[in-house]
């Protein structure tokens, strides 16, 4: 396979390893990166872009610690091929703050004591974010379903669900 005959992907070869050049938006900023074919989105974010808020808990899409938003939808970044994010929009917990102010979900997690060891927290918040984008006033059951892919060993989820409920109420109050 030589360069140029590769569809629309630009390939470079560095010491025998083929890299793909991609361009994506991360937390609102345009980023360029060279990724390997079987590189995962989580590796791109953590190792190349320094976004270590994205945690790896299982590497198999089962625990949700690595959840980020891709075009507004929650995905496990440990099972998304990095090259497939070319041209897409990624949001991590680092991109939630606006003008130095915490997102209402982050603040609710603090206020409702929804954080213990904190390892699942960034992923949990991103799943909550995806939910509230689609459904600003979810029921407790809808919150549970939205967080079903995020495992937490510390909290038993109760205070997390309370926090998402509180965030939804606060969003509702702002809109009124």
């Amino acid at each position: 396979m030589n360069e140029g005959s590769n569809g629309n992907k630009e390939l470079t070869m560095i010491v025998g390893v083929i890299f793909l050049k991609i361009e994506l938006k991360v937390n609102g900023k345009l980023r360029r990166a060279e990724v390997e074919a079987s590189e995962r989105l989580i590796d791109l974010l953590r190792q190349k872009l320094g976004l270590v808020s994205v945690k790896e808990g299982c590497g198999a899409g089962e625990c949700g610690a690595c959840t980020v938003l891709m075009d507004g939808e929650a995905v496990c970044s440990c099972v998304v091929p990095a090259f497939q994010t070319d041209g897409h929009d990624i949001l991590t917990v680092d991109g939630l703050e606006e003008n130095g102010e915490l997102d209402v979900i982050q603040q609710s997690f603090i206020d409702c004591d929804a954080v213990q060891c904190g390892f699942c927290t960034p992923g949990m918040i991103m799943s909550a974010k995806a939910l509230l984008i689609k459904n600003p006033s979810p029921s407790r059951e809808e919150i549970r379903t939205a967080l079903a892919g995020n495992i937490c060993r510390c909290t038993g989820y109760t205070q997390i669900i309370n926090a998402v409920e509180t965030a939804a109420e606060r969003i509702g109050e702002c809109r009124r």
Partner: peptide
């Protein structure tokens, strides 16, 4: 009293770093 834990803000911002993060 329900004092907010001292590391809560760092944790919700993803700034609380574990060994493998640094």
């Amino acid at each position: 009293k329900n004092i907010i834990r001292c590391d809560a803000a760092d944790k919700v911002q993803g700034r609380f770093l574990y060994l493998s993060d640094e």
